[in-house]
Amino acid sequence: MTFPAAFLLWLMAFSCHVRLHPLRYGVSPLGPHARHIAVTGRIVAPGVAWALSAWLDGVTGVLIWFASLSIAGLCVALCLASRRR
């Protein structure tokens, strides 16, 4: 339960990160309001994932939080790479 939740929140954070760097990742730029939401999402999503993981599983949860960071990041990167190809 902890991993899917943390994974989805990290996916959200990385997606926001990508949208905040349109030139670097080749995506369309955001308007000021959407940009504000993306900045908030990039900060809040990992924080919520951390709180949830640590609250549900303690030390194990913290390890799951880091692992979900890695795997969600890899998934986003592979999606972007395949989209570009």
Binding site: F14, H17, H21, R24, G73, A77, L78, A81, R84
Partner: peptide
């Protein structure tokens, strides 16, 4: 940090 999910396989 900016390039954290950047990969250019092509």
């Amino acid at each position: 940090v900016p390039d954290i999910v950047r990969v250019r396989l092509s």
